[in-house]
Simulated assay, not measured.
Amino acid sequence: MQRLGFAPHVSPLSQKGLVTLLTNAGFYIDHEWRATRESVFIIAGKPLI
Protein backbone atom coordinates (compact mmCIF):
# COMPACT_ATOMS: atom_id res chain seq x y z
CA MET A 1 0.00 0.00 0.00
CA GLN A 2 2.89 2.38 0.72
CA ARG A 3 4.43 1.79 -2.70
CA LEU A 4 1.13 2.74 -4.32
CA GLY A 5 0.80 5.88 -2.19
CA PHE A 6 -2.24 4.69 -0.24
CA ALA A 7 -0.59 4.32 3.17
CA PRO A 8 1.80 6.59 5.05
CA HIS A 9 5.28 5.54 6.12
CA VAL A 10 5.21 4.01 9.59
CA SER A 11 8.20 3.88 11.92
CA PRO A 12 7.77 1.73 15.01
CA LEU A 13 9.03 3.19 18.29
CA SER A 14 9.90 1.57 21.55
CA GLN A 15 8.35 2.89 24.75
CA LYS A 16 11.71 4.36 25.73
CA GLY A 17 12.13 5.94 22.29
CA LEU A 18 8.70 7.58 22.46
CA VAL A 19 9.34 8.92 25.97
CA THR A 20 12.68 10.33 24.79
CA LEU A 21 11.06 12.09 21.83
CA LEU A 22 8.37 13.59 24.06
CA THR A 23 10.80 14.83 26.72
CA ASN A 24 13.15 16.25 24.07
CA ALA A 25 10.16 18.19 22.70
CA GLY A 26 9.60 19.78 26.13
CA PHE A 27 6.88 17.49 27.49
CA TYR A 28 6.92 15.99 30.96
CA ILE A 29 5.73 12.45 31.53
CA ASP A 30 3.00 12.28 34.14
CA HIS A 31 2.25 8.56 33.89
CA GLU A 32 3.04 5.65 31.59
CA TRP A 33 1.96 2.03 31.54
CA ARG A 34 1.91 -0.91 29.20
CA ALA A 35 -1.54 -2.47 28.92
CA THR A 36 -0.41 -5.25 26.59
CA ARG A 37 2.83 -6.15 24.88
CA GLU A 38 1.72 -4.25 21.78
CA SER A 39 0.39 -1.07 23.41
CA VAL A 40 1.69 1.62 25.70
CA PHE A 41 -0.22 4.51 27.24
CA ILE A 42 1.56 7.74 28.11
CA ILE A 43 0.06 10.77 29.79
CA ALA A 44 2.26 13.77 29.02
CA GLY A 45 1.91 17.49 29.38
CA LYS A 46 3.75 20.62 28.44
CA PRO A 47 4.48 23.09 31.23
CA LEU A 48 2.75 26.46 30.99
CA ILE A 49 5.16 29.35 30.73
Rank of each mutant, 00 (worst) to 15 (best):
Tyr28Pro: 00
Val19Gln: 11
Ile49Gly: 09
Leu21Gln: 11
Trp33Leu: 06
Pro47Leu: 00
Ala44Arg: 00
Ile43Trp: 11
Leu48Cys: 06
Phe6Ser: 09
Pro47Asp: 05
Val19Lys: 15
Gly45Val: 00
Leu13Val: 11
His31Gln: 14
Ala44Gly: 02
Gly17Glu: 12
Asn24Arg: 07
Tyr28Cys: 06
Leu18Thr: 08
Leu21Thr: 05
His9Trp: 15
Gln2His: 12
Arg3Pro: 06
Ala7Val: 07
Phe27Met: 06
Phe41Glu: 07
Glu32Gln: 13
Phe6Asp: 06
Asp30Ala: 13
Leu22Phe: 03
Ala35Lys: 11
Pro47Lys: 12
Ile43Asn: 12
Ile43Tyr: 10
Leu21Lys: 10
Ile29Leu: 04
Glu32Thr: 15
Ile29Tyr: 03
Gln2Tyr: 14
Gly26Ile: 01
Val19Thr: 08
Val19Cys: 08
Val40Asp: 01
Ala35His: 05
His9Asp: 06
Pro8Glu: 13
Pro12Cys: 04
Ser39Phe: 10
His31Ser: 10
Leu4His: 00
Val40Leu: 09
Thr20Leu: 11
Leu22Ser: 02
Gly17Phe: 02
Met1Glu: 03
Leu4Met: 05
Trp33Arg: 15
Gly17Met: 00
Asp30Lys: 08
Leu18Ala: 15
Ala7Met: 08
Val40Gly: 09
Pro8Thr: 08
Glu38Arg: 10
Leu4Gln: 09
Gly5Trp: 02
Arg3Trp: 11
Pro12Gln: 07
Asp30Leu: 08
Gln15Met: 09
Trp33Thr: 10
His9Thr: 10
Ser11Asn: 12
Leu18Asn: 03
Trp33Ser: 09
Phe41His: 14
Met1Gln: 05
Ser39Leu: 11
Ile49Phe: 13
Arg37Pro: 09
Ala25Cys: 07
Phe27Ile: 02
Glu38Met: 04
Trp33Tyr: 14
Val19Met: 12
Lys16Trp: 05
Leu4Lys: 12
Leu22His: 01
Ser11Gly: 09
Arg3Val: 14
Arg37His: 13
Met1Thr: 06
His9Gly: 07
Leu21Met: 08
Ser11Gln: 15
Leu4Ile: 08
Phe27Cys: 13
Ala7Phe: 04
Glu32Met: 13
Gln2Phe: 10
Leu21Tyr: 02
Lys16Ala: 12
Thr20Tyr: 04
Tyr28Thr: 12
Leu48Arg: 07
